[in-house]
Design a protein around this nucleic acid. Structure first.
Length: 856
DNA sequence: GCAAGGTC
């Protein structure tokens, strides 16, 4: 009896490695939605076909149902009790379908997900998409492989000792996801609506709150608070000048510094009056600077920031790119210790080819000192180079600089420690004690390949205990104590790691978040300096409920879900209890928001006094104001109403036209960029779509909200509606209609009202208008095209034509389509006005090849 | 438009 075993890893690269190990390199690979590796072998005493594939991280992600997605109509407090839904995390990758497909015919499932809580959770996501599709078989069908390294001995040992997935750990992750979602989203929506509805110059698309990002911001603000609260103090210190053999010796006073000028002056006199500086002792001992441990993600990010001046998010992007192109090992790892059996020689052999450090690697081949210490977290080995590459091969720049660092760090971690001799001499004059120290190198060790870590400092001149040196002068130096500097990004990463904020994979994301949200700025030396907005927010939390912004908020959630993971508490009970705690904090926050608001009032301008006049309000018929600082929006000071706008472009009035539905003045929105489209919208309809079920356009850029512009409006009497401007269904996206851009002349164009697909009409046009006629072939609206005199591009020289731009071959040839990808083989799917809406058009039956936009 | 966690 043979069996078929489906095995699933957390990412494609791991599926590949594990398949290689288990099949001894005999696996055949094929591509489905994801790679599948197959081979024959035996499984628990039976002949087996193995089928190894992977997911791509989490299969599902959690969110609120559509009913709770509207920011204007959903009370954030209601989110704590709201239901949640799970949907495919990356629908385009078709992971669910892939798993279901590959599960068919399999009798057993072996889960090779990463051995941490998230991995345990993904196990059950995989189970949900496989077991129902698998063949029945007697006995245990689902197995969990537990491994602590991707090495042949570890993987084969895991295969011999399969267990079961741990439901408690998986449930703990479910709980965390629900808590993070509900707490984060409730606070974020409340804050955003409250403050953006009152202030016009916050310059942030969203005022977010999160159990990781907010404590991260707080670290930066706390340092700012220490700096501003700092009171400098004067201090004094004496500095006698001595020298030996023509070399000056800098002395440290044993008292360091005094905050009393009179006392310091007294000591100055005592030392001045002494006959000389007597050497009271000279000691020399060997010190060592330890070579680095293996490189883990957090360490790499710190060094990329402090040593290479790279933002953590940028460093992660580059490391991932170096990983996927085969130059570096997996860049997300907690381990700083190499796993037992790590093949150093394999890496050294590869590094031997390198023009810069090849010789050094060659030398290490026979001399390297196996690394000791560091922490082997068992997830992935430390980050190492995989293939040799030159600056030229990597295209220079940050790719090269990061690769260069990782390679040197790896070689350094196999090199000896750096050793040097430190000589310390003690002195005495006028009963005051002084000291001086000097260093001299002994063995450079790893600093030969990491020269920036070399020991600096000079040796002391030869000194003898008991000898007395003349004092040429005794300075009294006055100084001021100074505050600490702003946190460096590297120090911030250290604090996050220490307090358990984020993970190796997410630390860079949180820092990037607080930068993008305009809570902090990164200044020279990669110092993290909070903005007015960041400071105001944290001070606000400190006034209302300090726990909200402290690392304990994360620690508390971790501790609660830890109970679930250990099987000590039921998931439902823990979630309900913790949600209740946060809901209580939320209610308190809402009732005390005036405390935070008082701080905002002191730093920001109210909406009423922001922006410039633009357009009339349809309710009070007075002028509204355009707030052009992000998020761009309109504000009616009389009605105190905020009207959201699409983002990432500019807005102007449209010939003073009014919306026939509500009397608001229509505006034209132009998306920035080379092919940015322009469309009309009524500010009120955009925010309050008047027709049930009308499509919405998703906002562009940061802070963009879904809204309904005129190009999506089904009003049959308004000349701007898509019913009057629509030409044909978009060949590129599912819901869009191609409409005439009414102000695009002299370069007349048609735009999709949903996606970025567009068609430039012939360049020699004078004007383009929609005609009332429909194409007899495809039912598209026909265009009345008026060519410039003497510039007609038509064969017969006609200047005026009413044509269908889809079916009229001579016109279609003169047009250029952009931002389309896959329309060549797709059939045109129906007439103007969007598919299915009006039941017109010929849809799929139409075989005219021109309808495929092939000629564009 | 929102959290944090995987991963590409």
């Amino acid at each position: 009896m043979s069996c078929t075993v489906l095995m699933v890893a957390e990412k494609p690269s791991l599926a590949q490695s594990i398949a290689n190990i288990l099949s001894s390199g005999r696996a055949h690979s094929r591509r489905s939605f994801l790679e599948v590796h197959e081979w024959n072998g035996s499984f628990r005493g039976r002949i087996a076909n193995f089928r190894m594939t992977s997911v791509i991280g989490h299969v599902l992600s959690i969110d609120f149902p559509a009913k709770f997605q509207n920011w204007e109509t959903t009370d954030p407090a209601s989110l704590f009790d709201a239901p949640t839904i799970r949907s495919e995390a990356n629908p385009k990758a078709h992971v669910c379908k892939h798993l279901q497909q590959e599960a068919r015919g399999c009798t057993h499932l072996v889960l090779w997900l990463d051995c941490d809580r998230e991995g345990e959770n993904i196990c059950f996501e995989v189970i949900d998409n496989t077991v129902k599709w698998m063949a029945r078989s007697a006995g245990q069908q689902i197995f969990r492989a537990r491994f602590s390294a991707i090495s042949a001995p570890d993987i084969t040992a895991a295969m011999d000792k399969l267990g079961e997935p741990n439901k408690c750990e998986a449930l703990a992750v479910d709980a965390r996801q629900e808590l993070d979602l509900k707490v984060g989203v409730a606070f974020t929506r409340f804050q955003t609506r409250y403050f953006q509805g009152k202030y016009g110059n916050l310059d942030a698309s969203v005022i977010s709150y999160g159990p990781c990002q907010t404590p991260t911001l707080t670290f930066a603000v706390q340092r700012h608070q220490v700096i501003t609260a700092f009171q400098p103090e004067d201090f004094w210190s004496i500095r006698p000048h001595i020298s030996k053999a023509g070399q000056r010796i800098d002395l440290e006073w044993a008292r360091g510094r005094l905050f009393d000028q009179d006392a310091a002056q007294l000591f100055q006199v005592l030392v001045k009056e002494a006959r000389g500086m007597r050497c009271t002792g000279v000691t020399t001992k060997e010190e060592r600077r330890q070579r680095p441990h293996g490189l883990n993600t957090v360490e790499m990010l710190k060094i990329a920031s402090s040593g290479l001046g790279m933002a953590p998010a940028q460093a992660m992007r580059i490391a991932e790119s170096l990983y996927t192109s085969g130059y570096l090992s997996y860049p997300r790892t907690e381990s700083s210790g190499y796993p037992p059996g790590f093949d150093f020689e394999e890496v050294l052999v590869e590094m031997r080819r390198h023009p810069i450090w090849g010789e050094y690697a060659q030398h290490l081949m026979s001399n390297f000192v196996p690394p000791k210490g560091g922490h082997d977290a068992g997830d992935h080995p430390p980050i190492t180079p995989v293939a040799s590459a030159t600056e030229h091969e990597l295209g220079g720049g940050d790719m090269w600089r990061l690769y260069d660092y990782v390679a040197r760090h790896f070689l350094g971690s196999l090199s000896p420690d750096c050793t040097f001799a430190r000589t310390t001499a003690t002195f005495s004059a006028g009963h005051e004690a002084f000291s001086a120290s000097g260093t001299s190198p002994k063995r450079p060790g790893f600093t030969a390949i990491m020269p920036w870590r070399a020991v600096e400092g000079k040796p002391l001149p030869p000194l003898q205990e008991g000898e007395s040196l003349p004092i040429t002068e005794v300075d009294l130096k006055q100084g001021k104590t100074s505050p600490p500097d702003y946190l460096t990004e590297s120090e911030l990463i250290g604090l996050m790691e220490k307090h358990g904020i984020g993970t190796d994979a997410s630390i860079a994301v949180h820092i990037n978040n607080i930068c993008e949200r305009n809570y902090v700025g990164i200044q020279t030396g990669r110092k993290v300096v909070p903005t007015e907005l960041g400071i105001t927010l944290v001070r606000g939390y400190q006034l209302i409920d300090p726990e909200l912004c402290l690392p304990q908020v994360r620690a508390h959630v971790e501790q609660q879900i830890g109970l679930i993971a250990e099987g000590k508490a039921e998931k439902e009970a823990v979630v309900l209890h913790t949600l209740d705690q946060f809901a209580q904090k939320f209610r308190h926050f809402v009732t005390k928001i005036a405390r935070m608001d008082a701080l905002f009032e002191a730093s920001f301008s109210p909406l009423a006094s922001s922006g410039k006049v633009l357009g009339k309000c349809g309710k009070c018929l007075r002028y509204m104001k355009l707030i052009s600082i992000r998020p761009m929006r309109l504000y009616c000071p009389t009605c105190e109403e905020v009207l959201n706008l699409p983002q990432g472009g500019t807005v102007k009035l449209y010939k003073g036209l009014e919306c026939p539905l509500d009397g608001y003045e229509i505006v034209l929105f132009s998306l920035s960029g080379p092919d940015g489209k322009t469309y009309a919208l009524c500010p009120f309809c955009y925010n309050n779509p008047p027709f049930e079920g009308a499509l919405k356009v998703s906002g562009q850029g940061a802070g963009g909200k879904a809204g309904m512009p005129c190009t999506l409006c089904p009003h049959s009497g308004c000349p701007h509606s898509f019913l009057r401007m629509g030409i044909t269904a978009c060949p590129e996206c599912d819901d869009g209609t191609v409409v005439l851009d009414p102000v695009s002349g002299p370069k007349w164009r048609l735009d999709c009202n949903q996606c970025s697909f567009l068609i430039y009409l012939p360049e020699t046009l004078h004007s383009a208008k929609l005609s009332k006629k429909h194409c007899p072939e495809c039912d598209s609206s026909m265009l009345r095209l008026d060519f410039r005199k003497g510039a007609s591009s038509l064969p017969d020289g006609a200047t005026d034509i009413t044509a269908c731009v889809i079916c009229d071959e001579q016109i279609a040839k003169l047009c250029t389509a952009k931002h389309g990808r896959s329309y060549v083989n797709r059939r045109h799917r129906g007439g103007r006005g969007g598919r299915g809406r009006r039941g017109r058009g010929r849809g799929r039956k139409n075989e005219n090849p021109l309808l495929s936009f092939r000629d564009f």
